[in-house]
Design a protein around this nucleic acid. Structure first.
Lengths: 193, 193
DNA sequence: CTGATTTTGGACTGATCAATACACAACCGG
DNA sequence: CCGGTTGTGTATTGATCAGTCCAAAATCAG
């Protein structure tokens, strides 16, 4: 019943996501969002309720695709150590490809902290899922022998999340791709022998 | 000649710094800055020209004190490895003490990137100075034997800057102090042994 | 005490902010 | 083809934004 949408909601969220990613939450105006999505103000508010709600949608869209890619690499072939190294490499290459905009999650954490709303919940969720993924892979690495004995999976998971977060910040600092790879190599050195 | 200032300029910068640190650049209004510093609008603009200029002053004030503390630790007693570990520990404790506001430099990089103005220049400067300090200490560590042979000082410097940046982000994620120390221990593991 | 110079307080600027109101357009089931 | 329902475009809301203006206040040199 009634008039159908003239646009694809997911595509609109994706375009909004890129706007937020590029300029940050505060610096992205609702006008910017209309222009980025190609929608009128009414459509934006009718569909997404508020700037903050659209941001939350953008953020979960980002974390969903990002976690999916990371999980795919961790589920891929090779030893656990190789897969973890591949995740670090991917983060670096992704950063360079994405014109050094860093990570939307890291940028949001830095700008907003952990707000007491759905945005904060989405950020916590992303952290938890990343830690769980990493920890599981570390457990596999202890079994396949590619990671050194005595490592605590939870601690290593935090270390890897810290390392990827650090690399994202380095991308924003303008660090060269080569230096970032050297950083990743050193990080792997802490886990293997 | 003429009427004297009724306030201490450096103290005002410091209060402004805390306001920016707490809420980020965009979310801190000039009204907030007046309230934080206790100054009227006229005094703020008469003294600091613009919001952006006051932010730049706040940022350089932050980097100055922060770099000073870090340098003091690196110039302190102990082996190079011990001093580097002390820098990581200090970053963690500082983060917890400062109510998990992270690092103003990291937050600014995440929010604004490297803008083409004095703010961007201050950020680059901070990066360069940190890298130089770390690299020098690594060179000492290669001589005193506390760091493993074959390490490239420049690469390790990037690794350490990435690690401290990552720890600052972890603080914003709400990571426990114990986990952060575990991360620091793992990072040191990449450099010793 | 006077005049020059600077700081200060408070009112004010136009622009922009997020969000809403409302008329009209487009589609559905009947 | 029509009534109900939803989407869309435009105008507009009040609030807030960064920044300015100006007159009063405070100090100094003379």
């Amino acid at each position: 019943m009634a008039r159908p949408r003239e646009f694809d909601e997911t595509a609109a969220v994706e375009k909004a996501m890129h706007a937020f990613w590029e300029h940050g939450y505060e610096a992205t105006s609702t006008q910017d969002l209309c222009e980025a999505t190609g929608l009128g103000r009414s459509s934006v508010y009718n569909t997404f309720t508020s700037k903050r709600a659209l941001f939350q949608r953008s953020l979960t869209h980002y974390t969903g695709t990002q976690l999916g890619k990371r999980q795919a690499i961790l589920d891929g072939p090779g030893t656990a150590a190789e897969r973890i190294a591949a995740v670090l490499d991917h983060a670096i290459e992704d950063d360079v490809e994405q014109r050094r905009r860093g990570c939307l999650v890291v940028n949001t954490l830095a700008e907003l902290g952990l707000p007491d709303d759905e945005v904060g919940a989405a950020l916590r969720d992303d952290t938890d899922q990343n830690l769980a993924m990493f920890a599981e892979c570390v457990r596999e690495g202890l079994l396949d022998g590619s990671l050194r004995d005595g490592l605590d999976p939870a601690d290593v998971a935090e270390f890897l999340l810290s390392t990827t977060s650090g690399l994202r910040v380095m991308a924003r600092r303008g660090t060269s791709r080569e230096s970032m790879h050297a950083v990743a190599d050193l990080a792997m050195n802490a886990l293997t022998r």
